[in-house]
Amino acid sequence: MIILSSINKETLLCWKSALSKTAFLSSCNTFSALKKNLQQLNPQLILIDYELPGFIGYQSIQELLAISKQIKIVLFGPNLSDETEWDFFKAGIKGYCSDKASAEQINKVINAILQGELWIRRTLTHRILDELIKTTDEKKRIKQSIQDAIASLTHRENEIALLVAQGESNKNIAYQLAITERTVKAHLTEIFKKMRVTDRVKVALIIKDVIQSQ
């Protein structure tokens, strides 16, 4: 199922001609109707005209993805600046296509996107790698700061953090380590401070993540 969303009859005709071999097509002419169709029809792909009434840019893309995470969105519009087009990709579209594209070109774009590919201008592709490098660096930095925080825990704090990760209550931890609950709480306060978190659930998640990655 593919939803075509445009108020322009010529655009809809062109899209329909490009998708003449696709059995299940539905069309709508406002953004609110598109949202309703998305909820009811569970389509694989949506074609959106930049001029669709109610469509307000990145926010609208995010609204659609909030309804269906898996939905593939192709936006058709005028020639945008690299910056604007890239922001649409960051919002989650899978392809951007000129509103003047021929039926043949549209067919090619849609086939590529249905096969799980992105349809992005060559001049924008280096931005993906730049972002990938940034994201990877950020992940490394976070990993390192977690490792540093864990390394700064004392032996006792480490024991308590591990028991927290196993889901033990303060009472059980106190019993297992033969200390008072008050001491457990004092250690936990110190653990939260060192790990820069505010609750035991976050400690548990971080420790479990570290254990799994080892």
Binding site: F89, K90, A112, G116, E117, L118, I120, T125, I128, L129, E131, L132, T135
Partner: peptide, 11 residues
């Protein structure tokens, strides 16, 4: 394009 898509998903 396949790798590019994966890279974008990672981002």
């Amino acid at each position: 394009r396949k790798i590019l898509t994966k890279a974008m998903d990672q981002v």
